[in-house]
Write a protein that binds this DNA or RNA. Structure first.
Lengths: 362, 362
DNA sequence: TCAAGAGATTCAAACGTTTGAATAAGGACG
DNA sequence: CGTCCTTATTCAAACGTTTGAATCTCTTGA
């Protein structure tokens, strides 16, 4: 009974129980017509399909239906812990409608990116979700996708100006949240490690930090503001944090807290401070951003700004499905922007400023 | 010129330059016959394909060729940092032969696992690579795959007894490596946190630990041996480590080092010890296993046992491709086992035993 | 008795490729 | 002039589904 292809087909089932391929198809795909099929026939066909271990061929089906039932999820760098919760959200959104996520990791390599983009196009993904943890300037990479009228949604970056629906955390609010936390703990001399210039997040978080400082009438010493170089690999944030912690100490300028661009940078700062005998949080507080696993399991646990990544992933998948359905109905879904509200997660790396008088909260 | 499907087909190209679909297909797929096609024709067709932005339809092609050109990568829990380097290795192996990895994350949920397995079968993956970071006992889940004669390779677990090619780190050697390191640093009173009973790794690492102890004539105090409960979520290792650190301290039994089942457990131990004012590594050394990112960026960095994950992933993809080719040629590739050599990564969490006399190495 | 409808099932074309076999147009040779 | 190679191109069937239209067999009502 082994077919040459090694897979059971409708024809096998049809022959095995004496009906035509059409009838079998109608029953197994639960087409509207199947209510006209005699109940006994239905049962017989279903049983045979089960016995033979039939699985419909997605290729034949998609070819005929002209729907691939799949959505590409293109991560720029899956090794960034930031990505996984987003992927989980996407999976959760795709599961109920039986869409397959085509998850690929470009590993920040242009060559891989192109190659996977081609595969995605060939596999006729009905939509593309891009997870841009940190992303090159080159955004025209997706032109090919747009040309084929495939809806795109991007997570982690705002591309609404290019008419692409985007979901990201409200970086300005997050920066302010982190800064306000330090200020409320009594810190006044706060060192800042800004993100790399190439990232959009950098300016927004910085704006939030400045706003919070201004609101509390706290001055930021420009000599205590550092900027990470452009990213070269996934641990360059850590190395940058380590490096700048040493610079801060060498500068001899007093500071009691460090606001780092992200969690890995914060962990690098902690390492740097520790090496010089500065204890966190007793002598100096450190705050991060992103709430990734390493920040949670380090000791001290890093106080950080949490992004609702899973929710963002879920919403991204919903938007993509809506865009697909809209296109199906000849209409068009305009690009949307979702600015997720960040949340402060207080752990052990921040404490009341040692020299500061206890402040009475209003 | 917009097709109803929204995608350019061979027919479009054929019409546009006045040749038949066959000729176009022969040229673009670089079939053997294409050397018979006039050079001018070839060029003309290629140009038109480029201009129209043609991408061959993988569904039609696979249907006809009876090859899906894709391999499923089924991760039990992608949020385990352990998985990503393996995936990178697999991608590296699949890239040159133009296979698409169908990467899915079962999130340790039976329901998801089943659902994705069905999708994989429907998409006619030619092979399946399972990444079993930590895995249920239920191994018959893959029966359905085997029934369809799809080759399976598993990473992170030995299933050669079920005739499945397996790649994993030599856990026994790794356990011995970690233990020997502590012993060489002069530690004699070493607490051990064993892994969960349900994991095969647990017994093997434990055997290695015991061997190293025996070889050095060091006794392991059974009262200082703990066992992690079965895993419920991805941070339960951390929580277990934290919990047992407190138990060790409460037991009042002296110990100068802790050998933890994996890195997250080690990080939990560090947190627990720190909470009681025990400094790592000054008062107590801690060693982990796996070499995941959080272990590297924590302070102190965790001394650990590295697994060559990327190489294992690469080899897994090669084995899978070999098995596919073998099946193509009507032959059969017998199940193989690869025991990767672990490597000790010395960081900052281990130090010479405070009370021990300096030992002269031979 | 016949037309009309309902119920159950099948026909046949289509989706976009690939590929073995067929065709057509040119020589070269006996 | 017919035969036999090349060279260049096309035919047509097939892959496994889906689905609008068609067929066949009953029943029902006039």
């Amino acid at each position: 009974m082994q077919r040459k292809s090694g897979h059971v087909t409708l024809l096998d089932i049809a022959r095995a129980c004496g009906y035509s391929v059409s009838t079998v198809s109608i029953v197994l795909s639960e087409a509207p017509l199947s209510q006209n099929v005699a109940a006994t026939t239905r049962e017989q066909i279903r049983k045979m399909a089960r016995d033979l271990g039939y699985h419909p061929d997605a290729y034949a089906r998609s070819l005929r239906r002209r729907r691939s039932q799949s959505i590409a999820v293109l991560a720029y760098d899956l090794s960034d812990p930031f990505c996984i919760p987003i992927v989980h959200g996407i999976q959760a959104g795709l599961q109920p409608v039986n869409y397959m996520p085509l998850l690929v990791d470009a590993q920040t390599q242009r060559k891989l990116f192109d190659s996977y983009l081609r595969m995605i196009l060939e596999r006729r993904a009905e939509g593309v979700i891009v997870i841009a943890s940190w992303i090159f300037q080159e955004t025209n990479l997706l032109d090919d996708v747009e040309k084929n009228q495939v809806p795109i949604v991007i997570v982690g970056r705002d591309l609404t100006n290019r008419n692409v629906s985007s979901l990201l955390v409200d970086n300005e609010a997050g920066g302010a949240l982190a800064m306000r936390h330090l200020i409320e703990l009594g810190h006044r001399r706060i060192a800042i490690v800004r993100g790399p210039q190439e990232l959009f997040d950098t300016e927004l978080r910085w704006a939030g930090v400045q706003r919070a400082a201004a609101e509390a009438a706290v001055k930021i010493d420009p000599k205590l503001v550092y900027q990470l170089p452009n990213i070269t690999n996934s641990t360059s944030g850590f190395e940058g944090g380590f490096h700048f912690a040493n610079e801060m100490l060498a500068s001899k300028r007093p500071f009691t807290a460090v606001l780092a661009f992200d969690d890995l940078t914060a962990l690098g700062v902690v390492r740097g401070l520790n090496g010089a005998g500065v204890r966190v949080p007793d002598d100096c507080s450190v705050v991060g951003f992103d709430d990734v696993l390493p920040a949670a399991v380090a000791t001290p646990g890093i106080t950080t700004v949490h992004q609702p990544l899973k929710e963002m992933g879920l919403l991204a998948s919903e938007w993509t499905l809506q865009a697909i359905n809209a296109r199906e109905g000849q209409s068009h879904k305009p690009a949307q922007l979702y600015n997720a509200s960040p949340e402060l997660i207080v752990r052990m790396s921040t404490a009341r400023c040692p020299s500061a008088p206890r402040k009475i909260r209003p």
